[in-house]
Nucleic acid binder design. Structure first.
Length: 274
DNA sequence: GTCCAGGCATGCA
DNA sequence: TGCATGCATGGA
């Protein structure tokens, strides 16, 4: 992989095992949109980005090496060897054709608070609606950047909202979960950074203590916002997939179950199984 | 009109 | 411990 700055843009060449379309729009992150020129745009860690892929070349518009090192390298998981990971997953003959078909799905390492908050919203909800709610949440309570995009709101800002404010966003019965979660993080009662340093089981236990967080939301947050690649979220789609694994998950998923899960989740939805 | 979506809290056995 | 039920909303 070679990276160079050129006319204020960042060009990355020789990228392996990345499918930007799938990674940004497979239900793990809810804020990315694609413009008419084929650039995905969004904000993560308070930083805006316009990004486009052409084969093994990736262009990041209006950014620099420093920002790449600080934000995007980790966000897009560029230091992880996904070629090796996919080879390993494919030892399981069931997932092998799925990995080939959707080759290049990566885990996006999102902010802990954004991931946790977003997946509380996601419960018993569909992806289209989730995106709409989060869009309203960000434009109303996030910070407007000079490019016109909005950051994901901070827990401090959201801690000022009432249950009714959250209901007004269309969050339905989840409003009371969100209201309590924002306040717990803002006042320090809930330390997400500390949870990130725990072992998987302990981290999961800590998230399960949160009002409105069950096993599915906990595992999504752990996988997408806390760096636990072995967290394996099972939602209604994955429950159907699990019927294909009556004896449990294969050994080759160990340590990277979350990545396998993303391929299987996408496969299930694309083929409307069940 | 019914069913469903990246589920969870609650009450009851 | 496990299972049934209620829950907000909008698209199919």
């Amino acid at each position: 992989m070679r990276i160079k700055e050129e006319d204020g843009n960042l060009i990355i060449e020789g990228v392996e095992c990345l499918n930007l379309d799938l990674s940004l729009d497979c239900g793990q992150a809810f804020r990315w949109k694609k413009d008419a020129d084929g650039f995905w745009y969004g904000v993560a860690f308070g930083t805006p980005l316009y990004i486009k892929q052409d084969g093994s070349t990736v262009v990041m518009r209006d950014t620099d090496l420093d920002t790449y090192e600080k934000v995007w390298k980790n966000y897009f998981d560029f230091d992880r060897d996904y070629v090796e990971i996919c080879d390993r997953l494919k030892r399981d003959s069931l997932i092998a054709p799925t990995v080939d078909e959707y080759y290049g799905i990566r885990i996006l390492n999102q902010e802990s608070f954004e991931a946790l908050f977003s997946f509380v919203i996601s419960q018993q909800n569909n992806i289209k609606r989730i995106k709409g709610i989060i869009d309203r949440l960000c434009t109303q309570y996030g910070e407007r950047l000079s490019c016109g995009l909005y950051t994901f709101p901070t827990a401090e800002r959201l801690s000022k909202l009432s249950v009714e404010d959250f209901e007004a966003l269309g969050t339905g019965y989840r409003a009371r979960y969100l209201e309590r979660l924002a306040k717990a993080v803002a006042c320090g009662e809930l330390d997400l950074g500390a949870i990130k340093t725990l072992e998987l089981e302990q981290a999961r236990k800590a998230l399960l203590d949160i009002y409105g967080v069950g096993i599915k939301v906990a595992n999504c947050a752990l996988l997408f916002g806390f760096g636990f690649y072995d967290a394996f979220p099972v939602d209604v789609w994955m429950k159907r997939v699990m019927e294909y694994y009556p004896n449990g998950l294969p050994e080759c998923f160990d340590g990277i179950g979350g990545i396998a899960q993303q391929y299987l989740f996408h496969w299930a939805r694309e083929n409307n199984i069940g």
